[in-house]
């Protein structure tokens, strides 16, 4: 019977919380004004949204996606065991997959059953001029063809023709063009990974292009 009181109190607590959360959401702008008077609100702490080190590469039973009540979950390999000895990076899986492959630390198969099949590697860099002040993009075919086949990208995602592809960061962030893989499986778009693609500095005499408006009105 005591269990009843336990659950009653849990229910009460849950109700309070739901009411509390709703009230908090409704009063959110008010709260911020209050915090300006002195107290630093919890919303203003440093690195609020940054992933903490200890939250990286969690083992399956603790990662929030796998069900720890499932026996199979506990059989799965924790990622950190597999990553032991691999070069690290600052984003994604925190593993530099391309370097791991170049250094021979990984030997992933290129064929389903035959481990001796070698990939069809093409070493061709494509330079894409960027209109704005960011360094130009160098697309290296080599690391891509080490992992993928031509048909993965051509011609569906990228038309294999000069100036035929319009690519923008917004398209990439929404999962199109490079974003079909980058930001999902291969290294993601973070402030630390910009220079991985935007790697060719602009020429010394480069000046930002003028918009039509500023050409019409030089005082603008």
């Amino acid at each position: 019977m005591k269990t009843k009181y336990f659950f009653l109190s849990v229910l009460a607590m849950t109700t309070l919380l739901v009411v509390g959360v709703n009230a908090q959401a409704a009063q959110a702008p008010l709260k911020e004004v209050k915090s300006a008077k002195g107290k630093v609100s919890g919303a203003n702490i440093f690195n609020r949204l940054l992933k903490k080190d200890e939250q990286r590469n969690a083992a399956p039973p603790e990662d929030g996606i796998h069900d720890s009540a499932n026996d199979g979950t506990h059989v799965l390999q924790p990622p950190l065991i597999a990553y032991d000895g691999l070069p690290t990076s600052e984003f994604g899986n925190y593993v530099d997959w391309v370097k791991s492959l170049d250094d021979g630390l990984l030997k992933p198969r290129y064929d389903l059953s035959d481990p001796t099949v070698e990939p069809l590697v093409m070493d061709l860099d494509i330079v894409r001029e960027v209109k704005a002040s960011m360094p130009d993009v160098v697309f290296p075919h080599k690391p891509h063809t080490q992992w993928l086949h031509c048909s993965n990208c051509h011609p569906k995602i990228f038309i294999p023709q000069r100036n035929a592809n319009v690519i923008s960061m917004s398209a990439i962030l929404l999962g199109q063009k490079c974003g079909v893989c980058h930001g999902k499986v291969s290294f993601p778009i973070t402030t630390k990974s910009c220079t991985k693609c935007h790697s060719k500095p602009k020429p010394a005499d480069w000046k930002p292009p003028k918009s039509e408006a500023s050409l019409k009105n030089p005082w603008r």
């Binding site: 390999q77 990622p79 597999a82 899986n93 593993v95 997959w97 990984l106 992933p108 198969r109 290129y110 064929d111 389903l112 990939p119 080490q146 992992w147 993928l148 086949h149 048909s151 993965n152 893989c181 499986v185």
Partner: peptide
Amino acid sequence: WYHRIRFRCKVCHA
């Protein structure tokens, strides 16, 4: 991550 250690993307995706 587990699968890309053993296979290249091409095997499954092509």
